[in-house]
Design a protein around this nucleic acid. Structure first.
Lengths: 119, 119
DNA sequence: CCCGGAGATCGACCGACGTCGATGTTGACG
DNA sequence: CGTCAACATCGACGTCGGTCGATCTCCGGG
């Protein structure tokens, strides 16, 4: 169990408390924001997010995501777990399927952490 | 010379043409956006960006950045080069010093690529 | 013309990460 | 209760990226 997986990982919004351009950004805040951005900095995960966002009801199961991204099922599961651990997705197990959905406002919080507060 | 370093790297705004949440996001667009996000997904680079943004005139030289981030001079130069190549910073050589400044609107463009178009 | 300082580049080391096949787990259905 | 399908986990492999010390380049000053 890695130390980074042990933390709450439920509050993506916490990283937008101090926007990058407003103050020198402490070491801890930089580490937290980098953790979320690192989860986003992968083509496969970006495509998975957009596929889920564009899906009906804004949720999708693994079987619907494997083909479009062109990756194996274990790899897709791995990426989805990463996004869930980061607090960007939620997992809902219904029957044999696992439905993934966007956490409302999570992406907006990350976007807010990058913009300058003045404008 | 890596293939990724050969491309223009001047238009960070190009990656916000199709927001993550608006369409399934093609493989090429995902690769481009991931390239910019990967440059941001590092604590040291985030701190460098915030230091430059908070500096007087929104520019700073390497000698002023080495101490605050607690890294060696070659490492800081390496990170700054990464940010310049990605189109997030500009380098201006004046005398013996190299001044780095934010590219106006670059961070906002990345932020725009993460937000949903609807709101 | 020579020297010193600021910064960039080089080469190397090492940990982190994406990817896969194989296997384990869990629920649905006869 | 046995079987199958969907998904998660595991172990391994190859690559990429952050970091450093050493060195190179360039400019200013004496």
């Amino acid at each position: 169990m890695s130390p980074s997986a042990a933390l709450p990982a439920r509050d993506v919004a916490a990283c937008c408390a101090t926007p990058v351009t407003s103050a020198p950004l402490g070491a801890d805040d930089a580490l937290e924001l980098a953790r979320v951005l690192k989860a986003l900095a992968d083509p496969a995960r970006l495509r998975l997010l957009s596929l889920i966002a564009a899906a009906d009801g804004e949720e999708a199961c693994v079987c619907d995501l494997t083909a479009p991204v062109g990756l194996s099922q274990p790899t897709v599961s791995h990426h989805l777990k990463t996004l869930v651990d980061t607090g960007l997705l939620t997992r809902d197990r219904r029957g044999s399927w696992a439905f993934y959905a966007l956490v409302p406002g999570a992406l907006d919080a990350v976007a807010g952490a990058l913009q300058r507060p003045g404008r």
